[in-house]
Design a binder for these strands. Sequence first.
DNA 1: GGAACAATTG
DNA 2: CAATTGTTCC
Lengths: 261, 261
Amino acid sequence: MPFFTISTFNANSVRSRLQILERWLIKNPVDVLCLQETKVSDDQFPASAFDSWGYHVFFRGRKAYAGVAIACQGEPNEIIYGFPDGKDGKDDDRLMIARFDDLWVINTYVPQGKSIDHPDYRYKKDFFRRFLDLLESEFKADDKIIWVGDMNVAPEEKDVTKPETKRNHVCFHEEIRDIFDTVKSWGFVDVFRKHHPEEGQYTFWDYRVKNALERNIGWRVDHILATPSVADRSVDCYIDREPRSWEKPSDHTFLVGIFDL
Amino acid sequence: MPFFTISTFNANSVRSRLQILERWLIKNPVDVLCLQETKVSDDQFPASAFDSWGYHVFFRGRKAYAGVAIACQGEPNEIIYGFPDGKDGKDDDRLMIARFDDLWVINTYVPQGKSIDHPDYRYKKDFFRRFLDLLESEFKADDKIIWVGDMNVAPEEKDVTKPETKRNHVCFHEEIRDIFDTVKSWGFVDVFRKHHPEEGQYTFWDYRVKNALERNIGWRVDHILATPSVADRSVDCYIDREPRSWEKPSDHTFLVGIFDL
DNA sequence: GGAACAATTG
DNA sequence: CAATTGTTCC
């Protein structure tokens, strides 16, 4: 049986990233690709492009902000959008779940939060708390779950450049790292870190920082996590920096996980 | 001695058209290429692209509107920008003249005019009257002159689709056709019409008309005219429709004139 | 429809 | 820097 491969990519507009996506998928066929920040309403989603590349695609989005999608070569058994708590109904484009037999794939685009004193940061913390509620009410830690996405949290000092300058940042503040850690403690292993303990392994390089990629000034905010039964079977997990250097790049790049399920 | 080849092309932003220009010039090297609607200020003009294609380039423009350029493989003896009347100084990016020994090349981007009752239409008519003044004061009809550009006039019924629906259009109104005809009567031959009397020969297809090119719903508003001594030596003059079908096209295409000078 | 502009966001 | 939503122009 071949390996199960999964990737996560914050596209920063899926319509602006079709060339990148096509080029990457040709070289890197995966079973499942999870996208964030598709920034497109469902009626405008470029589904036919994914069709032509041989992928089914499921998506939930609105114009200009957020939006998630899952593209996959096999048929999922079910797709679930948003939190079951259904609170304000605005998060159905930030969280989606696909089931492939007994394997659950959860794709999240966690709110960034703007600044510590901004209401959006409150909302970010709530997002993680509601996500933990979801785990506790709907799953067990011995279920087979892969949780991927842009979590907008750099968990450790080595996951950012100059951590001392970022203590007050919504993606690195001690409080949000603690909250993310609490969610992980429910039962997730950081699959990337299992294979790559090195520092300076980033998935996001700000467009505004010049030569950010060459200077490697970035953040590790995109993650692949898995429950132990799945994580135990991970073969590799790596960041493909290359697409960040291609024409018309996203500010994020692809993170890939390979599992011997 | 090889033929003298000249082309005119409304680029609708020269910076957005570099790929089209490169691709076309590789297949169609010309002695002189006249551009209109470059839509770029002089400090932003992509001169190095023309350099790399083996052309000298001269230009006068402002941001967002109008702008003309002449690219040529040989060195011109002189370049003149704007009307000598210098009125309001705003037309120096709508008219330029290059001299190659005893051959004058005049490149114009005639104002479109918006609508018959708009002040811009008055300005369009003035443009032609001032152009006639220029001819009368600076040239003789036995000079060797090639006048090219986007004239924003379709001279005859056969130069538009459904002429009966366009009688009130600023590019087809009887008044503007009469004015254009008066200017031509100073001493120009329509070189394209000398070789191609057929109807439905267009140089412009509106982006907003869907499948305009396939349905051939367009306008012949770009022209190559010449004084008799030059026109007598024209070998061919044709519209190259192909670039209108390429990726990221202008709404106009290239008109080419070949002369045995 | 596709260029440009300006303003806003991350 | 590169997306977005608007507007205007042809």
